Simulated assay, not measured.
Amino acid sequence: MTAIGANALDPADSLVILFGESATPALRDVAVIQQFDDPKAQLALTVAVGDHVEIDSVSYLVERVGKLANQNLQTIGHVSLIFDQIPDQPMENALYLEPKVKPQLTIGSTIIYLTK
C-alpha cells in the first residue's frame, strides 16, 4: 500500500476500499492505494470463491466475488474488501472475506491475491 486516505479507515466500518495509483484526489481521500508489482499479472488477475487474499501475512478466505470485482481489479486496481456477513444485496465491486476482522493497515502493508 502506497497511501491511505484521511477518511479511508473508519474503525466502525467493515469496508476497505482499494484503488490503484490512478485514483482521483477525491477517491484517494476515502481509499487505500495499492500498487501492483507486475502490471501484466494485474491484467490477468481473476479472484474466485475459495481463493485467498493475504494481508500482512494474514490469510483471508474469499467467500463471495462481486460481478464487477475482477474487471475493476484488472483495469483500475479497484475492489472493496468487506470483513462482514454477505448481505441479501451484496456489493458487486467487492470481495467478502473471512475472518470478519478488518486488519490494521499501514503504508507499506502488503496484499497478495492467492488465486488458483
Rank of each mutant, 00 (worst) to 15 (best):
D84N: 13
A41V: 04
N70I: 11
L61P: 04
E98M: 15
A41Q: 02
D10R: 07
Y113H: 08
I107T: 01
E54A: 11
E21I: 11
L45V: 06
L18T: 10
T24V: 04
P11L: 01
A23E: 06
D29P: 07
R64A: 01
A26D: 11
E98D: 15
I55C: 10
V49R: 05
V32D: 08
V30K: 04
P103T: 04
Q85S: 15
E92P: 10
E63F: 10
V32M: 13
G5I: 02
P87Y: 08
G5W: 09
D13I: 13
T24Q: 12
A31G: 04
V79F: 11
F19R: 15
A31F: 03
T46C: 07
V62H: 06
L97H: 09
I17G: 06
Q89R: 08
L9K: 02
Y113R: 03
F36S: 04
V58E: 12
L97T: 00
P87A: 10
V32H: 12
K100S: 07
G77Y: 04
Q42H: 04
V58N: 05
Q71H: 14
A94H: 11
I86C: 00
I33H: 00
L81Q: 11
G5T: 08
I107Y: 01
V47T: 09
H52K: 15
A31D: 08
A44V: 09
I112S: 08
Q89E: 12
L45K: 07
L105Q: 05
L97G: 02
V62N: 03
T75S: 15
P39E: 05
N93F: 11
K116C: 10
Q85I: 13
V65L: 05
V79N: 12
I112N: 03
V101Q: 06
T46M: 12
A23R: 09
E98C: 12
K100V: 09
